[in-house]
Simulated scan of single mutants.
Amino acid sequence: MSYLFPAQAKITPSFSEPELIVQYAQASGFMQTMEKGKMRVRMGQDDLAVYVNSLNIQTESVASQFGSNWLPSVSLQAQFDQALTYVLRNRNNYDDAMERAAARYNVSLPNALELGQRQGIYQQLRSMYWYGYNASNNEGILNTQGATSVTLPADTDGNTTVTAYNPNDMYQFILQQIVLMKSRMYQSGAQIANRIVIASAQREFLQFQYSSVVQVTSYQRPGGGTNTVAGAIQKIAEEAGDSIEWVYDDTLIGKGAGGADMVVITIPEIEVPTMEDPNTNIFGKLQPSTKAVNVQYADVAAPIKTITPIPDGGLTQMLEMRATAGWCWRPQGVTLISMPY
């Protein structure tokens, strides 16, 4: 904790620009991979764990021309899972002298400290969501047990890196991963429309969006033009009734197998497949049920701020909230792709 606002020497007359040159950090899109694009603010401030129940079914029946003395039955298997919660806190002290020093730079010190503290907690939430604290407990989306993990295969020219990869092959590869995911989740049919989120480091998506152009022999837009990998995937998904969201997170750099970059494809909310009766998924109508695939629980939507005086003068400003790590309830809805850049 340090504040550096050195004394200033200015020429008079002069003009001082009131606007600040502020240091920026990446605004991560990790929350878009959650159910409804936000945390579940449902737990209490003192809750040490979150539990969820699940129910699996196996069905069987018999068919014969005459009655049978032996009849099969439905088998139900209930289980529950848990996620530990963690307290996120940070604190800053300041006094009147520090406030006045900051004011010479046109900075509101309490506001700057609060925003900085919030950013620290939010970055910690992002790290908890992706990586968790204890991989053996399956904490974090990247540690999801049962998630599909693949490595980018060589293209038709033998290239294995994103920058050298054949755009036509990349376009087909990503679409194939989406097809496989929707198939695993039974997300097909006229009434199914999915929100598909692809999270990657900037250098992957920007490559797909700007540099990797799909040739006209693989994808043709109305009017005979060509498109980029990202644009072609987006268009195909829209025509199929789905939507594609690309989000950035540079902490995924180097998090794949062998130090490759990680690209995460997920469907954050599952849609219940349904048909007119006889509906072979009628058990899916059982309530209460959830459509969530990826979740992160918190006790509050934003950190709680507490300001208290300190004995030697000044104030202590503390921010605090409690949250779980990232938690995937349906591993079929997550594909982890290691892409060497």
Rank of each mutant, 00 (worst) to 15 (best):
N279H: 09
N166Q: 14
D96M: 13
L71N: 13
A301F: 00
Y94K: 06
P153C: 07
T324Q: 06
P340D: 05
A230V: 05
S149W: 00
I265D: 00
R42N: 03
Y24K: 14
S16H: 02
Q207M: 14
R100M: 08
N194P: 02
Q58S: 10
A135S: 11
L76V: 08
Y248K: 08
D299M: 01
G189H: 08
N138P: 00
N194V: 07
L76G: 00
S64L: 02
Q45V: 10
Q287N: 09
A135Y: 04
V179C: 03
L55I: 14
M31G: 01
E276L: 08
E271W: 01
M275T: 09
L115C: 09
V300S: 07
E139V: 05
A27C: 08
I192Q: 08
G326D: 05
Y51G: 07
Q117N: 12
A260N: 11
L125N: 01
N227P: 00
T274C: 00
E204T: 13
E60Q: 06
A49Q: 13
P331H: 09
R203A: 12
S68L: 14
L113T: 06
V41K: 10
G29Q: 07
A199K: 02
S14K: 06
D95M: 04
S211V: 11
M185H: 01
R322D: 03
M185K: 06
I304K: 15
F173D: 07
L4F: 12
P72H: 02
V62G: 05
L319T: 03
A135T: 03
T33M: 15
A97K: 12
I141N: 01
A154R: 07
I310Y: 09
Q77N: 14
V247E: 11
L180E: 07
A78M: 11
I192N: 05
N93K: 15
V150E: 13
L152E: 00
L252P: 07
I21S: 15
G224P: 00
D157R: 11
E239D: 05
A201H: 02
G116Q: 11
I265P: 01
T59G: 09
I236T: 15
T160A: 08
M262T: 04
F30D: 06
G44M: 08
N111V: 13
T151D: 04
G313I: 06
S28A: 09
S16R: 09
Y171P: 07
G140Y: 02
S149Q: 09
L180N: 14
M275D: 13
G224E: 14
D95N: 14
T33L: 12
D157S: 13
A230T: 03
E35Y: 15
N166G: 13
Q296I: 04
M181N: 06
Q123F: 10
T163E: 15
N227R: 10
L55Q: 15
E114W: 13
V272Q: 14
P311R: 07
R104Y: 12
L152P: 00
M275W: 13
I337A: 00
N53A: 05
V22S: 15
S73T: 12
D47W: 06
A97D: 15
